[in-house]
């Protein structure tokens, strides 16, 4: 039995809107082993970030269970949740808006430690902050700077230091590099990877950038309109994508080689509205292979060891 740190069971988050219920996250299940990284990919608005936040209960899930080390996070009291969040942290997408502009770097990094009363001694606190700054690669001279004086990469390092301050076991990285320049993206990704190895962290890595997730994740789950359509180990997913949506996504990754010709699969048609979606395959309207068989919502099923797909016509299309 693998050491599962986090298990999500049938997680749902619906938002009430004027025109009906918006199914942001619609019954997704997965589990992550300790020390591994699960990449969560999908297009904008497919519910990736909502999933991440629902797991941490920054937004209350509508239904479902989130088992963190066997405990159901969605049933914790406020006090218990506060304790649980020491082990579960979040790295934000936008380092420009996720840092309080009125606080210095040191204050920002010290905050989780101070509010959880882990270190009360001022001198020890400063030392700990300095240590964290060193860990994430922030120069000591930035100790008393304000975030608006720093570039995106440095700000994101502050965000990472904040997340690490409580020595968590599990971190949701919500598109941590999408707001950064490409050159800095690589630095931050390497930092996250190093930290994972050093501290044995478990990540959920949310992104829309497939080339990023490929290098970073052990497993990849592809989301489409609030559901997971395919989940597999990274190599397997990239080599043998089974769901038509995954296939189309992978074909869209640019290859830096002009001589290589390949066919791009274009996704046509209108996206199904997430507000009161009909009970059919969510990809039905845009899928090249859609038939009447797709008029029912497919279940995510294991077709190869570790490889899960939700497609009604999988066998017919003979893609296995």
């Amino acid at each position: 039995m693998a050491d599962v740190i986090l298990e999500v069971k049938d997680l749902k988050k619906y938002f009430k809107t004027k025109s009906g219920m918006l199914h942001a996250v619609d019954g997704i299940s997965f589990s992550i082993e300790r020390g591994k990284t699960l990449g969560l990919v999908g297009e904008s608005g497919c519910g990736k970030s909502t999933t991440g936040r629902a797991i941490l209960r920054l937004i209350e899930p509508t239904a479902g269970q989130v088992l963190f080390e066997g405990k159901d996070v969605s049933k914790l009291s406020r006090h218990q949740l506060r304790l649980a969040r020491k082990d579960m942290q979040l790295i934000f997408q936008d380092p420009f808006s996720s840092l309080d502009p009125r606080k210095t770097v040191a204050q920002l990094i010290a905050e989780p430690i101070v509010v959880n009363r882990i270190i009360t001694d001022k001198k020890k606190l400063d030392e700990r902050v300095a240590e964290l700054m060193y860990t994430v690669g922030l120069a000591p001279r930035l100790f008393n700077s304000y975030p608006h004086e720093l570039d995106g990469g440095r700000r994101q390092r502050i965000g990472i230091a904040r997340a690490l301050a409580l020595e968590p076991k599990f971190i949701v990285c919500d598109e941590p590099v999408s707001a950064l320049d490409v050159s800095i993206q690589a630095q931050i990704l390497n930092l996250l990877k190093e930290l994972q190895q050093d501290m044995g962290l478990t990540y959920i890595f949310i992104t829309h950038d497939l080339s990023v997730v490929n290098h970073f994740s052990d497993d990849i789950a592809v989301m489409y309109l609030g559901q997971i359509v395919e989940k597999a180990p990274s190599v397997e997913l990239f080599d043998h994508p089974l769901h038509p949506y995954t296939e189309a996504l992978l074909s869209a990754i640019p290859i830096p080689d002009l001589s290589e010709r390949r066919e791009r699969i274009l996704i046509k048609g209108e996206i199904t509205s997430p507000i009161n979606p009909p009970d059919e395959c969510r990809f039905y309207k845009r899928c090249n292979y859609a038939t009447d068989a797709c008029r029912k919502n497919p279940q995510l099923r294991e077709v190869k060891p570790g490889h899960f797909v939700a497609c009604n016509r999988l066998e017919e299309l003979n893609r296995l």
């Binding site: 941490l56 942290q89 934000f92 996720s98 840092l99 905050e111 959880n116 904040r162 301050a165």
Partner: peptide
């Protein structure tokens, strides 16, 4: 609604803080 309020929440701040 700023993101840094969410960040404070996840850092463990209480409502008063």
């Amino acid at each position: 609604d700023a993101e840094y309020i969410e960040a404070a929440k996840i850092a463990g701040c209480s409502d008063l803080e």
